[in-house]
Design a protein around this nucleic acid. Structure first.
Length: 596
RNA sequence: GGAUCCAUAGCUCAACUGGAUAGAGCAGCCGCCUUCUAAGCGGCAGGUUGUAGGUUCGAGUCCUACUGGAUCUGCCA
């Protein structure tokens, strides 16, 4: 496999800088900020002048630039060079080199994307809770996590995705005590019975969705009601068989529901573990931590101090990790640590990524520090990848008009309906049968939803605007599906007309721009991995789709007046673009319909 | 009180980690469909990058202080 045009140029310039006595890194070539002047630029001359100046020599960056230009001019990879401003070097690549690169990309099933030395990576995302319906707040973790999982796999890593259910806290106590109020006669509440519980769940997902908020609000106002929930939680965690059996029902009913919800988004998990599943590890874990001398007793609670400078009076510094409350209950610090122990034992990963709301940044800082103190992992092996909250247009967390969180299933249905409506309006799909129309509407709707999320940088807060989501023009998921569908259409028409793909030759600016856009794939994928930022890949794919749309309007392929070798070349370029777009869109979780 | 994050075009967001004239999309205005999909393409307009300093050849990006917002801050997860 050849190297990208950008890397080839970097090699040439690095050599020139090294020969001139400068660090080779100064020869780094980059995509130009001024594409109107040239596609590539090298800014090393300015930095080189800085190096000389530090050594006490005076230097003019323009002089250095002309020295470098002299050294590289005439190289076969370069068609033109120009020095501009304080010492920028603008570079035009040799078009034959670009065309040769395009033909190499065709031969590569990964269209130029390289692989890395594989790591074993656990990704903790999704973060749904047992017994609670999925709402818009669950969207980002699922969509971002899934994209990162697929990206890391595409890079060659071994990735295990774990949904890590919230199934072990007070919420379970709420649910158990509420169920006892509603159906006190159930066998689970008979403490004389310890075995042989029914295999059928006493509650449905809708039951739980109703019962949990009811219990929670009662407990907020009524202290005795809260005490009952807490007692039920404690008994559950102490292993009362009837409660444990109920929990198993809650979990399996929830998982079935969640698989549906995540499945609608194309999100899948390798592990459906949760907090409850690591509970058996906790006693040994605490014993180990005590033996290592990192725990201490404080006001009856068992804690780990993770910050020497912590001052509880002034509330300054990082608060301690709480392993056990003064009431003896296990907390979410504890289960998260136990999960780390479990993963060490079962998987022994090189890296663990948590794709969780940015609000939990402090929590993860504490947990990671404790895990390091226990000697299980290095701090570099655990990363919290936070993201902003989903807000309404008023900047506050998104709510429906009734004040509830919008259910994810309602949101996805709205997206599908909007896409179906758009399909009707276009008039294109009138002759498609019903199932294909549904399929297209689903793919377009989900593409719009996911792309709207992923194109934002992770950390910024997220303004949820259904109007904007269901607008399918411009920088949207549907735009990219549309570009890809055109490529497929062209492919079909070419087959009908018996036009075969051939060698790519560049005869138009739009073809050159498209090839250069495609050639940036590997770099975009690498940057996305390093910064764990899917929006970088989204940006690349959008630029490819945009370059293709220009190509589409500027460069006819199958029209009669086009010479046969140009037809073959352009068809090959279109097919190459389709291949890369499908690879990239698959990573961010978008599916391309055959036509739309 | 302490800490983290954010502030860029009317709106939603980028800006390759210090480089040229800060870029896209939407909304607005003007063009382009009798042959490969107009969910598209071309063009115009839109900015004192929250404020004030500092570092240097060069700052949206780095340092300091403010202003405004979000979040977290030992026994819920």
């Amino acid at each position: 496999m050849s190297d990208s045009v950008l890397n080839r140029l970097t090699d040439v310039f690095s050599q020139a800088f090294a020969d001139a006595g400068f660090p080779a890194e100064l020869g780094a070539v980059r995509e130009s900020d001024r594409p109107d002047l040239a596609p590539f630029q090298c800014n090393g001359a300015m930095a080189a002048a800085g190096v000389l100046k530090k050594q006490g020599e005076k230097a003019n960056p323009r002089d250095i630039a002309s020295k470098i230009v002299e050294a590289v001019s005439g190289h076969s990879a370069i068609a033109g060079l120009e020095i501009a401003g304080p010492g920028f070097i603008n570079i035009n690549p040799n078009e034959e080199l670009v065309a040769a690169r395009a033909n190499d990309l065709i031969a590569d099933p990964r269209t130029g994307a390289t692989l890395v030395k594989p790591l074993k990576v656990v990704m903790d995302y999704g973060g749904a809770n047992v017994a609670k319906p999925m709402h818009v707040g669950h969207l980002r973790s699922a969509v971002i996590g899934e994209a990162l999982k697929r990206l890391f796999r595409f890079r060659g890593h071994e990735v295990i995705g774990d949904v890590h259910l919230g199934d072990w806290g007070l919420q379970m106590g709420h649910l158990i005590s509420e169920l006892e109020d509603e159906q006190p006669g159930l066998v689970y509440f008979d403490s004389d019975v310890t075995d042989g519980y029914p295999s059928e769940s006493p509650v449905t997902m809708e039951d739980m969705a109703r019962m949990y908020p009811a219990a929670s609000s009662k407990a907020k106002e009524d202290e005795t009601r809260m005490k009952r929930s807490q007692a039920a939680t404690a008994e559950l965690q102490a292993g009362r068989p009837g409660y444990r059996a109920l929990l198993d029902h809650f979990i399996s009913v929830s998982i079935e529901y969640l698989k549906q919800g995540y499945g609608d988004l194309g999100v899948t998990f390798d592990l459906w573990k949760g907090e409850a599943s690591v509970d058996p590890l906790i006693p040994d874990m605490i014993e180990e931590m005590e033996a290592k001398g990192i725990t201490e007793d404080s006001d009856g609670a068992l804690i780990i101090r993770v910050d020497e400078g912590y001052d509880s009076e002034k509330r300054k510094g990082l608060p301690p990790v709480m392993l056990k409350s003064s009431a003896g209950a296990v907390l979410y610090h504890t289960t998260d640590l136990a999960t780390l122990v479990d993963r060490k034992k079962e998987i022994d990963p090189d890296l663990i990524l948590y794709i969780v709301d940015q609000r939990q940044a402090t929590h993860f800082k504490q947990v990671f520090k404790a895990a390091e103190m226990a000697g299980w992992y290095n701090l570099e092996q655990m990363e919290h990848l936070g993201f902003g909250t989903v807000n309404g247009q008023d900047g506050k967390p998104f709510k429906t008009r009734d004040g509830d969180a919008l259910r994810l299933s309602d949101l996805t249905q709205m997206m599908r309906d909007a896409a179906a409506k758009r399909l009707d309006e276009s008039g294109i799909g009138l002759d498609y049968d019903e199932s294909e129309r549904r399929d297209i509407a689903n793919k377009v709707g989900m593409a719009a939803l996911k792309f709207a999320d992923l194109q934002n940088q992770r950390l910024t807060n997220y303004i949820f605007d259904i109007e904007r989501f269901t607008a399918f023009e411009g920088k949207t998921g549907p735009y990219m599906l549309y570009a890809a569908a055109r490529m497929k259409s062209l492919q079909r028409n070419a087959a009908e007309k018996h036009v075969a793909a051939g060698d790519i030759q560049i005869s138009h600016q739009s073809e050159l721009q498209l090839v250069l856009a495609l050639d940036a794939f590997d770099k975009a994928v690498q940057k996305t991995e390093v910064s764990r930022a899917p929006h970088i890949l989204c940006e690349h794919l959008f630029r490819v789709a945009q370059a293709y749309s220009r190509f589409w309007s500027d460069c006819p392929v199958l029209k009669d007046e086009v010479p046969i070798d140009v037809k073959s070349s352009r068809l090959a370029l279109s097919n190459l673009t389709l291949k890369q777009l499908e690879l990239g869109l698959d990573i961010i979780g978008l599916e391309v319909p055959e036509r739309m």
